[in-house]
Amino acid sequence: MSIKIGEFVFPGDVLRDLTVVNGVILKGPGLHSHEEPNCLLVTRAGILCFKSPNTYWIDGQQKRYYPKRGDLVVGIIKKTGNICKVDIGSSELSSLSMLSFEGATKKQKPDLQVGDIVYAKLLSAHREMESELVCIDSYYKAGKLGPLSNDGFIMNISLNFVNRILDINCPLLKTLGQKYVFEIAIGMNGKVWINAKKTKDILNLMNALLAAEQESNSNIIKACKQYAS
């Protein structure tokens, strides 16, 4: 019994006859190595996906975030000090050093209060250790990272919906942009920060995202096309 790409898989299934490049298979969420060579064990329910040359992963539903290195996340400050504690929705708070902002020195630190929102990058995420956030890239520049305005609104969406709206082919954000002028920061942890000029606009955008979460991709594309034409 062989499982094809795009089929539903369930925990306990074993994938055989996989494409191997130089003896390596890259495995994404929901897949783990199996005792036999060239085989993977499935641990989550979802659709099996493949990207050439050798990447496999499972597209399923998830709400709880598990930190991954390099992810861009939206977090809420829970404790301040030289090292802030930030809630990114995972099992524990992650740490964010006050010195990891652009232009910050020991004397001149960014003004952050408890409850403020930051858009940050995960520098390290190891399952045995606390995850660590930074607000600068490797050139010590902030780029798009840093504290987000307090005028905005934060909401939670499911993780696979994050992946769907960040897909370059998804017209949802573009279509919303035709009607409203807004800023949005989508974290891979399912937290979304929205800011617009009017509170009413923010509420409309929030309702649009919540409604789209329940719809399938084809329905979203259809609705967007209808609106654009």
Binding site: F10, P11, G12, G30, L41, R44, G60, Q61
Partner: peptide, 11 residues
């Protein structure tokens, strides 16, 4: 557990 997407060895 399937709905939550928690990793399981088997159903």
């Amino acid at each position: 557990l399937l709905n939550a997407g928690t990793d399981m060895k088997f159903l």
